[in-house]
């Protein structure tokens, strides 16, 4: 069976609209991941024995279990708790929570790389804990880890096809349906593969540029 360019072209508009959903899920999921991840990282650092320990175990657990199961869990369990969300929102939430655990570890590395002297200088100037994080620690901790966060953005992008398992009409789901209707899977699935390849290679290139920019960080003075 040969690659049918005509058919490929025919499926392209549908796939592109699926790709839009994919990108939406990625961006929204990343916003959740960046925010929740930061919260987890700060709690882990400052939360003391109980809260900090809980954050640490939560991160560990989420990182060691499959996204697909987490996705099913939210999809099937939330309605039972009276929370009805659209599949897309459920998917965004699952992606966000899953990658929040990864982002938390990235932030942690950044936080740990801020020298002790910076904490002490902030304390000696009378900064209260909240302002110490906001004004002194995080502005130093986050820029160096932006490339690493970018890599997780790409990883999350490549995980969005899993949302097809909970009926989200993202690009892979569109391709599968097109294939099932025509019994021609080769063209739509290959196109999906190419889309992912092009987008993630481009994004990797951008991340490398970020690395060049943030790699040589201002050293603590």
């Amino acid at each position: 069976m040969n690659f049918d360019w005509g058919y490929a072209l025919e499926t392209l508009p549908g796939l592109l609209s699926g790709l839009v959903i994919t990108l939406q899920a990625t961006v929204l999921g990343m916003l959740v991941a960046l925010t929740l991840g930061l919260l987890l990282a700060v709690l882990r650092h400052a939360g003391g024995r109980w809260i900090g320990g809980a954050a640490r175990h939560f991160i560990e657990f989420v990182r060691s279990t499959p996204l697909l199961i987490q996705l099913y869990f939210l999809f099937y369990v939330l309605p039972g708790l009276g929370v009805t969300l659209s599949p897309l929102v459920t998917g965004v939430l699952a992606l966000g929570v899953h990658y929040a655990a990864y982002c938390a570890e990235v932030y942690r590395a950044g936080i740990n790389s801020v020298p002790r002297g910076q904490w002490e200088a902030a304390a000696s100037l009378g900064y209260p804990a909240g302002a110490r994080w906001r004004r002194i620690i995080l502005p130093q901790a986050i820029p160096p880890v932006i490339p690493a966060l970018g890599n997780y953005l790409i990883a999350m992008f490549k995980d969005t096809p899993l949302l097809s398992a909970i009926t989200v009409m993202e690009v892979l789901q569109v391709a599968k349906i097109a294939g099932a209707e025509s019994f021609r899977y080769l063209e739509p699935l290959t196109l999906v593969g190419v889309m992912f390849l092009v987008l993630s290679l481009t994004a990797s290139r951008l991340v490398r540029r970020l690395e060049a920019r943030y790699g040589r960080q201002a050293r603590p003075a």
Binding site: D159, S164, L172, Y185, L189, L197
Partner: peptide, 24 residues
Amino acid sequence: VEVFRGTSALVQLFWFFFALPLMG
């Protein structure tokens, strides 16, 4: 390396499972 890192694992799985058989 680039192809397998650059595409999604699920897409790869579907491609090998649904598309490859059509090529025999």
